[in-house]
Nucleic acid binder design. Structure first.
Lengths: 206, 206
DNA sequence: GTCTATACGAAGATAGAC
DNA sequence: GTCTATCTTCGTATAGAC
């Protein structure tokens, strides 16, 4: 779920469309508190009204800063991700390293995988919805980043060169997302070890 | 999403708990028609009321056969999967073959990936819910089946033996699930080719 | 600009009539 | 076994107080 190496910049897709009219500071505050709610109670009570009550405002107040519940949830996920990831943290790391690191952190936050999966499901429903735009962009960005790392690793002789970096990038993201789900349902599926077994598969064949 | 090699038998988890009091025949009829609704209109209108209207009954009538909307949806997915997969079809196939085949079929049914992802998300919410029980069992069953195939392939020298079959099984399922999602969001991510690039990674190293 | 109050329709679920 | 009626909660929209 997490592979946010390049989350630089403000929310482009989920913010208020181009204007600052809705109070950026207060908006951030709401997001911070919403994340706390998730951290404490998992993904339960994530109704608009539930979140509003937990924060201490009316549900209509939330809609003053976010156009819809879906947009709020996407912003919450995006915000949580940006708090965690710094571009610098992941510099000069291998594709697999970045992936494993992000996955382990993500899995440590209760409700995060559930939130992520719920939003991904919503993103499949229709084009142009907040979650659809967000995840389309996100997947593309992460695949590109990983493919770049893989290409460099191939050039350096650290990854076998008989596979397409773009394919492997998509495969890695898919594996990470899917394994987090399986681990949550069955903790005996060891997330870290299993993901790292990818390293064996990617090692040069020579 | 699909990897239903061993869907033999009646719905164990999602059925009416042990009794036949709710009319098995009518129940099957409802499921058949519900699947048609999905096939025609995707995952839209999947509210209890929407499905009921499409079928031509009241929503309360559906709840006579299924305890909740979630249980109905799980039963729909399970039923759709069982219609598609026959144990015989996949005999003597490689793990990757089975996976690719099932994924391609699954992706061909509108709304199926969305339904699957939605239910998986719901399954993460709490233990003991219909979707949680269903998917916990399902993942375990599929991992076991794939691991068995992989072990046989290793013995036959068709798959490298320096990796753990259980790990690879989990990895394969995760990759298949995740790729179907990515493909739906961005069709340029070629599902079949990408999944099959796994074959290169799994080939014996000798 | 920020927020509360309120209303509306749709949803899942239950109770009870037929 | 199936319906209608009803309850509660939800997302959303609007009006208007401060």
């Amino acid at each position: 779920m997490p592979n946010e190496e390049l989350s630089a910049g403000r929310s482009a897709v989920v913010g208020h469309a181009g204007s600052y009219s809705k109070g950026v500071a207060r908006r951030q505050e709401i997001l911070d508190r919403a994340i706390e709610v998730f951290r404490e109670r998992g993904a339960d009570g994530t109704s608009l009204r539930g979140i509003a009550t937990a924060i201490g405002v009316s549900h209509a107040a939330l809609l003053h800063y976010f156009d819809s519940r879906e947009q709020l949830l996407v912003a919450v996920y995006e915000h949580a991700e940006s708090l965690r990831d710094t571009a610098k943290t992941y510099q000069d790391r291998s594709a697999l390293d970045v992936l494993v690191k992000a996955a382990m952190i993500n899995v440590g936050v209760p409700g995060m995988v559930e939130l992520y999966t719920t939003l991904v499901a919503a993103s499949l429903a229709a084009e142009g919805t907040p979650s659809n735009v967000f995840f389309s962009d996100r997947f593309a960005r992460i695949r590109k980043d990983l493919a770049g790392r893989l290409t460099a690793e191939q050039a350096a002789g650290r990854v076998r060169d008989d596979v397409d970096p773009d394919d492997i990038a998509a495969l890695l993201v898919a594996a990470s997302d899917g394994l987090q789900i399986q681990w949550l349902l069955e903790p005996s599926v060891e997330l870290e070890r299993t993901l790292e077994s990818f390293a064996v598969l990617l090692a040069p064949t020579s």
